[in-house]
Design a protein around this nucleic acid. Structure first.
Lengths: 340, 340
DNA sequence: TTGACGAATGATTGCGCAATCATTATGAGC
DNA sequence: GCTCATAATGATTGCGCAATCATTCGTCAA
């Protein structure tokens, strides 16, 4: 195996022990459970560590103990502000724990996600957080055999693997559409991009509600697999108005699209909210500052991240996993001035 | 050590070898260098792996080989769209390599960054990418002793540790201010948030250029340690106009602030660009779609990420590190309609 | 048929640490 | 001063893999 010239070998526990005049195992203990080592020895060991610049070998530690202090997180996008907020919540909840976070990006690809899940699970994680509830069958079965707590976030559905923390994209959208209708809009449309399962649930919520009020017109529904952006929001609104010029309100699948739609409406001198109502989804920071401020659906992104870590930490403490559980978090429609 | 009941022990190379009727080391070889194993054996081994559900143990592999295939990345923020683009570039450059990415978030804290760097370096990474060039002295010295390629991104400066890929925040801002002045603005101001070293370099570029033209008025410079947001942009513009109502142009430290400033100007019915010119920084996707479209400085964020990985990959291939090198990437002022 | 050479495979060892169990200091109570 | 309990420390072992080196097998030329 190794075989470096002996001079540049790394410093190990044995070296520290020799320097501090204790055995290697005492050094190991001193690092992990300092209270079990006498103050005098601890002092000597800490000095030796500093003097030699000892740094523990994570791989060796993991191999010997069969554990890591790493929580894995798999998200479909890092460009999306939604997940940025989730991650903020996660970091805040990790504060003053000995856990660290490892992020994987599936880029909205189920097969990439499957690979990531496999890669993560072989690492003896302390916990794994995955986005959505639509993992591949293979991934699901590997997750359910995992030895660490598993949390699915952002969505709730049947057959949870472990825990779920999220909200109903369907119900949240129903609220939004009910709001549009209550405002008096009678020809509501929808624009949506990047049709992941949660986007689809929102579209379903739209269809359901419009239909229930006898206001469903499929020509007013415009979706695309492209990824969301402000520019795309403008373009989709243009396309929608070309197809159905009398559309009087548009539900946008997220706030990026909604902002783009608002800008486009302004360029066309369409009065918002009088002639066209606009409702977004997610309620990003920016949305409150647009002119006019955007009506949107606030989603508990930060809280989802925060709670996911809380849940993992409590599962680790209990030793045994808490029983699988679903945690519905509330959404709320924030009425501002793009709906009348 | 272990000590599980023998029944649920994990599947190891030895198990696979027994199943495939070869030795463990041949299985190991089959996974890492399949071309060195005979086709017959390979077939049997692959079948055995599938049958037993063998999954390699990363910790053991790392310990035995002294290597990982992980590239570390430390960014100060995941909420910031700037780093989202860098990360996109990184992922694209990692495609069809056997490397994976591990992200750390220093949250703009030098001490958190120092801890992250230490944590990462103990993991025998294939490479480490850090943001900025302002690591603590301690971190710098640990980085320079690292055995893997180190890349500092986003900024260029003296004393590189390893490689640097970035651009001059100072020069890019100089260009922007020269543009404002060329447009005829004579009372330029600046708003900036989250004063990290790169923000400060931009402010310095502003001062330098304004001064050179005899147009520097410190009351028109407004900075805050708060983190950037659209709302904050509006508020800073308000504050600036309260202090110096005759300000005729504002350079915003980033596009989030610029968008907020634009919205605020609109609320106040200040004609943009006639009465107030606005210039942003970074040229985010959204900026081109605002009304009016935002003049901004395009920065090579995606390219920085992409090149950082290219550089690491070539360093790994060469075996020896290429000599330390600085890679200046171009910025460009994108003139749109918020400057006349 | 023999020898030589490269391809294929295997035996052994140790990476650095932590779990287990054993042993030795330390101190309390009488 | 003694016993016993507890705290503190240490010796040994193996986690699962890959590096090294040794060995066997197969093939082809003479």
């Amino acid at each position: 195996m190794v075989r470096k010239t002996s001079e540049n070998k790394r410093v190990t526990l044995v070296d520290v022990g020799r320097e501090a005049n204790v055995s290697a195992i005492t050094v190991s203990r001193c690092i992990r459970e300092p209270e079990k080592v006498s103050p005098k020895a601890r002092e000597r060991i800490e000095a030796a560590i500093a003097r030699l610049g000892y740094v523990p070998d994570q791989a060796a530690s993991t191999l010997a103990s069969g554990r890591t202090n790493v929580v894995g997180l798999i998200v479909p996008s890092l460009t999306n502000a939604v997940f940025a907020d989730v991650i903020r919540g996660i970091y805040d909840a990790l504060e003053d724990s000995n856990l660290s976070l490892q992020i994987g990006n599936s880029r909205y690809s189920p097969s990439k996600e499957e690979v990531l899940i496999r890669t993560f699970l072989r690492q003896k994680l302390s916990g794994l957080i995955v986005s959505g509830i639509d993992q591949t069958q293979q991934a699901r079965s590997e997750l359910s055999e995992a030895e660490c707590p598993i949390v699915q976030i952002m969505d709730i559905g049947p057959d949870p693997i472990g825990h779920q923390i999220g909200f109903s994209h369907f119900d949240a959208t129903v609220d939004a559409i009910e709001h549009l209708i209550a405002c008096g809009y009678r020809k509501p449309g929808l624009i949506a991009a990047r049709m992941d399962p949660r986007s689809q649930a929102r579209v379903a919520g739209f269809r359901h509600t419009a239909e229930r009020h006898g206001l469903l017109d499929p020509t007013r529904i415009l979706t695309t697999p492209q990824s969301s952006s402000t520019g795309l929001g403008g373009q989709l609104l243009s396309d929608l108005l070309a197809r159905a010029p009398d559309t009087d309100a548009v539900f946008c699948n997220n706030d990026d699209l909604a902002a783009g739609a608002l800008f486009e409406a302004q360029r066309r001198n369409i009065p918002v909210p009088q002639q066209l109502g606009i409702c977004g989804f997610n309620d990003l920071e920016m949305s409150a500052h647009l002119n006019p401020p955007l009506t949107s659906v606030a989603t508990p992104r930060y809280q989802i991240g925060y709670n996911a870590i809380e849940l993992i930490r409590s599962a680790l403490n209990k030793g045994a996993h808490a029983q699988p559980r679903q945690q519905y978090l509330p959404t709320e429609i924030v009425v501002r001035q793009t709906t009348r």
